[in-house]
Nucleic acid binder design. Structure first.
Length: 262
DNA sequence: ATGGTCGACTCTCGA
């Protein structure tokens, strides 16, 4: 059994006690983090290694940042998405397990605010370019018959039933048709969205905004996903969202999403 | 109950 977890932690240093307690208690094999929001020099590698975990990370100042936390040491790290748009942002990290699984943590650009003012269209364009670069890269790996675990915050509400009120978000960069089409491309390449494959009914969320009492009112959305390559589908056991982590003191606005393979 | 999101950073931006 292999447990893979993705969690947008919204600052690894603000969340460090919760992270350490979570690793100690739940013992995932692989934890994919997003929005660590620190420079590499400020990554808490000592505290993580003290509890028996390895860490690879791609950080930057103040924003973004991704990491791979693992029980086994990982090899062949890649810290940049090939052909990603300029300027560089820390949104991609990949490494390999002993069994030659490629594990990838991504923080896809948010892209808001959409349209309206011309200056801000740049964020949406950056998102679309980044998604295309990811799709091209995954396409290449699938053609090479690699075994892939691709997890992270994709910043896409895939279906209308993945958000409490789709009307509110219909012009939002998380739901725009071209953004959804780029996400659909991963599916068309054969990648399987583990949670949605096992729970197609909708109404399950991984993110609740800090504002509006969104958590208390269950005004959430599903934007965190773990995708696996088609050659791993036979091993897919279960997937679930660990909602209780959104209810802790000083929570991230995202809950961890788990996938179990055998 | 006189509030109302959070985190990083220099005070405003990004989510």
């Amino acid at each position: 059994m292999i447990n893979i977890v993705t969690w947008n932690i919204n600052s690894i240093n603000a969340r460090l006690p919760a992270l350490i307690a979570y690793l100690k208690q739940k013992q995932p094999d692989f934890l994919l983090l997003q929005e660590i929001k620190c420079l590499n020099d400020n990554f808490p590698k000592q505290q993580i290694s003290e509890i028996g975990y390895n860490a690879l990370f791609a950080g930057q100042k103040a924003y973004n940042g991704v990491a791979l936390i693992s029980k086994e040491p990982l090899s062949n790290p890649l810290f940049e998405l090939p052909n990603a748009p300029e300027p560089y942002q820390a949104r991609f990290i990949q490494a390999e397990t002993k069994q030659k699984l490629k594990i990838i943590s991504v923080y896809v650009p948010n892209g808001n605010p959409p349209l309206k003012d011309p200056e801000n269209i740049e964020k949406l364009k950056y998102k679309l370019s980044w998604q295309k670069a990811l799709n091209d890269y995954i396409h290449k790996l699938i053609n090479q018959n690699e075994s892939l675990i691709l997890g992270g915050d994709f910043n896409v509400i895939i279906n209308d039933n993945d958000v409490y009120n789709p009307e509110v978000y219909k012009n939002n960069a998380l739901m725009l048709p071209e953004v959804r089409q780029n996400m659909q491309k991963l599916h068309d390449l054969g990648m399987i969205n583990t949670f949605k494959h096992l729970h197609p009914e909708g109404g399950n969320y991984s993110f609740w905004d800090y504002t509006m009492g969104a958590w208390q009112k269950n005004m959430g959305m599903l934007i965190d996903d773990i995708l696996i390559s088609p050659n791993l589908l036979q091993n897919l056991k279960e997937s679930f969202i660990d909602k209780q982590m959104r209810g802790i003191d000083k929570p991230s606005d995202h809950a961890p999403l788990w996938t179990v393979l055998n």
